[in-house]
Design a protein around this nucleic acid. Structure first.
Lengths: 115, 115
DNA sequence: TATTGTGCTACAGTTTATGTAGCGCGTAAA
DNA sequence: TTTACGCGCTACATAAACTGTAGCACAATA
């Protein structure tokens, strides 16, 4: 799967708009999960594998290559970690955590109303 | 593909944590793109198809079913649109737009430094 | 020298997504 | 009243993406 560089045609858009490249990237299996897990601490390849249950090493490696080339993730002595840019991106998606618990509560509420 | 309800096992996690369901959902092909395009206005099925270049009607329909069941998207007289909860979610991911342009600029910068 | 842990790669099998055709429905003009 | 249009889809063959398991090459430690 081609790496979605801003400025190039990506899945969903031929315009080259950066947001479209980003949405393509984040919309790939495990990409969001990898960013999410790398926030707290550096993780080795195999630690990442066990965090992301059932990710195959083949795919983990592909995603890591993409994230590294797009300057969101890097690799140091203690394993894989977010770059500064990756941290910025994480700060944006961080509120998804709290929001999702409210979302889950509302879905439950609704389900109860139906019964 | 099973709909990732919070509280149930999803791709990447068997814990049932809402954030994991959300990351599974948003990590599916086109899900983020659909939310992004529906923000400004309601769109018919066929308008969505042409916004999301190259999405197949089969898949668009699957994603819409998921998003509707998870109470993020609904369907009214003028087409598909975000629910209140969908709007909330959109507000969280909205900053991705501005951030992505900076990200694209930084990537370019870096590329120039290498040459 | 053997063991353990690292980051991977190979590859067959399965799942997911695409691409094209077209159906059934409602509206509305001829 | 039938022809035509746009709507939301569905069917299905083909293609692409992902999984699961095995195991390689390398480095550090025992």
């Amino acid at each position: 799967m081609a790496i979605p560089f801003p400025g190039q045609a990506v899945r969903g858009s031929t315009t080259g708009k950066p947001i479209m490249a980003l949405l393509d990237l984040l919309g790939r299996t495990w990409a969001l999960g990898i960013l999410w897990h790398l926030n707290k601490q550096s993780l080795t390849f195999r630690e990442l594998q066990s965090c992301c249950e059932k990710i195959s090493p083949t795919l983990l490696n592909s995603r890591l290559k993409e994230l590294r080339q797009l300057n969101l993730v890097t690799h140091n002595e203690s394993g894989y970690c977010l770059t500064d840019m990756g941290q910025e991106l994480f700060q944006i998606i961080l509120p998804l955590g709290d929001w999702s618990t409210q979302w889950a509560a509302d879905l439950n509420q609704e389900q109860n109303n139906d019964t």
